[in-house]
Write a protein that binds this DNA or RNA. Structure first.
Lengths: 230, 230
DNA sequence: ACATTGAATGAATGATTGTTCATTTTGTGA
DNA sequence: TCACAAAATGAACAATCATTCATTCAATGT
């Protein structure tokens, strides 16, 4: 059985490091336009809200022609899903890279993950506004649900594992790692809400300190010397 | 100067306990229809999302005629603001009543306020979905902003005051009441998010226990015997 | 150089949007 | 009882919505 050639055929005797990056000019500009549409849709949601995000506005912001949204994504709705997908991938990629870093111990991983949560790469006015827009319709739009639960089971499992390791390292008999996981996760969620509603007064270092403060009250031996600038 | 009579004239020699409740049949049904529209709009946001909340659907859910939304609220947008206003008033009324209750001490008020946060009166799938819908467009729609910051400065000030009182009562020198306020508030926010995304597995008593767990780690003398069923 | 193929274009479409307002209905006060 | 005034109705409207598709454009392989 011979595989049907896709738009970017990978030659069998070539080592393709990143098979999804096209090499010919046509597919390159196609990919570029696709990205431009996602970017424009994201900007539209931030600027006009999800209700004000119309095909016309997306097309205007993208600088491309009317038909492009449907040509590349089939429908406006699919484009919005692509925006959500990109956002979710960026967030998950961040914390997974930290969790899989063998050079860090449990406490370092935990702090890194928390810091990443307040990194401008994910915590910025536009992206947080988009998160909230999609989350708002999590119940009424089943298609969007898989992308909006940033701190999902996988995330919580990693946090729990790290906290249990801390517990075993520091002999905290009276600390419930499950409760601590829920508390920390809820705080991260809440601080995002805080940022979304008051991004002008929100100070990432203060948010980090707040998390350290709570961690310290549970795991004093691990976090008693830490601060936002540590 | 004689005052112009409004739709519900208040006779001068009568003590009007609630001057806004009309007594004649016409104004009564007018008010009833107004409420029905707010109710329908709220249901529409929950069922179809804010994007799917059209005039047609509101009219259908309300059982009233096409022109009613504009007759009573001038525009669909004003009706949505009325929904937000009602939600905000319900939430604020809840915690303010507790804060002003002279029969409760600081610790009792704190626990009551937290419990109120997980009360079905405010924490239910529909209302939380509406909160999120409005919050999502907090940045792109300035009109909605005054209504969506449930845990605003006033709320935080009350929590801070209560925690400072606990601090003075229990001699917790190393506890920062300001940090504790931020931590508790963020957790309440985060737990709402949790509920919104996973209302099927969310257990209010567990959420309450989580808050008590965090409070206990900061103020052990006050909350060491407390639990969700206390 | 050139035929081929897929991407890009944008005028046109039909459906749906929020709102208007002439008309009808209904409660009120005399 | 009845004239009046306010409330309710819903057909009609212009604007805007997402999408289609015949046509144009341009990169590709030979």
């Amino acid at each position: 059985m011979r595989e049907v050639r896709k738009s970017t055929p990978a030659k069998d005797d070539e080592i393709t490091v990143e098979p999804n990056i096209p090499t010919n000019a046509r597919d390159l500009s196609k990919l570029q336009n696709r990205k431009q549409l996602i970017q424009a849709a994201a900007d539209a949601i931030y600027t006009f809200g999800i209700r004000g995000t119309t095909s016309a506005r997306i097309q205007e912001l993208s600088g491309l022609s009317r038909g492009m949204v449907n040509l590349h994504f089939g429908s406006k709705e699919n484009l919005l899903l692509a925006v959500a997908e990109e956002l979710a991938a960026r967030y998950a990629g961040q914390w997974k890279a930290i969790a899989n870093n063998p050079e860090l111990d449990a406490a370092e991983k935990l702090i890194s993950i928390i810091k990443a949560d307040f990194d401008p790469l994910v915590l910025n006015a536009r992206d947080v506004a988009i998160w909230f827009s999609f989350r708002a319709e999590a119940l009424s739009n089943p298609h969007i649900f898989p992308f909006i639960d940033s701190r999902d089971k996988g995330f919580r499992a990693v946090i729990l594992e790290l906290l249990e390791q801390l517990k075993s390292e520091g002999e905290y008999e009276d600390v419930d790692a499950k409760l601590a996981t829920d508390a920390l996760t809820a705080m991260l969620e809440g601080l995002w809400t805080d940022y979304h509603l008051h991004s002008d007064t929100f100070i990432p270092d203060e948010a980090l300190n707040l998390c350290l403060f709570v961690l310290r009250s549970m795991f004093p031996a691990h976090f008693s010397t830490q601060s936002a600038h540590g």
